Amino acid sequence: MHEIGVLFEVVKTVEKFARENDVKKIETLVLQIGELSSVVPRYMKNLYPAAIEGSILEDSKLEIQVLPANALCKDCNKVFALIKNKGICPKCNSKNYEILGGREFFIKEIVCY
């Protein structure tokens, strides 16, 4: 479970942002996590309180937006939801695809008081 390490790095990044912008308290942190990323959203939610203890993020809320894994079928050019369709193009039943997104991990928004 590497999510705690990821969260500690996120906290460092947010604290640096806060120092540089004279922010005293964070209300909400919004993360975007791709369906294919190695980060498990449920673990992030569960570990968040421990990771933010004693930081500028203490008492803040964590919001997670899951980004879909989209793929482009190389045979028929249809863009489709990779996970939902179990890696099979719903138009032509091909398994020949290129991943377009879903591996991302972003700090999308930092809501300050």
Rank of each mutant, 00 (worst) to 15 (best):
A18E: 06
R42K: 14
I52E: 06
P41K: 01
D59E: 13
S55W: 07
S37D: 05
E58Q: 15
V30P: 01
P41L: 05
E27T: 07
P41S: 01
S38E: 03
L47T: 02
N70A: 08
E63Q: 11
L47N: 00
E35M: 03
V40M: 05
E27N: 12
K24L: 11
V23S: 06
L47A: 07
R19H: 12
L62Q: 08
V30T: 09
C76S: 09
M44F: 07
C76F: 15
T28A: 04
A51M: 05
L31P: 06
C76I: 11
M44R: 08
V39I: 15
G34I: 10
N21S: 11
K24A: 09
N70V: 13
L72G: 02
L62W: 14
N77D: 10
S55K: 07
V23T: 09
E27K: 15
L47R: 00
I26D: 07
N77W: 07
K61L: 11
A69V: 03
K25C: 06
N70P: 00
V23D: 08
D59W: 10
Y43H: 03
C76L: 14
D59P: 02
I56W: 09
V39L: 05
L47W: 00
N70R: 14
K74L: 15
Q65A: 04
A71Q: 01
A71M: 07
D75H: 13
K25F: 11
E27G: 02
I26H: 13
E20N: 13
G34W: 09
S60W: 13
Q65I: 10
E27Q: 12
E27A: 09
I64N: 07
R42N: 05
G34D: 01
L31Q: 01
V39F: 04
E63C: 00
P49K: 13
Q32S: 12
Y48T: 02
V66K: 15
I33H: 03
M44K: 09
C73H: 12
I26L: 11
S38I: 07
L72T: 02
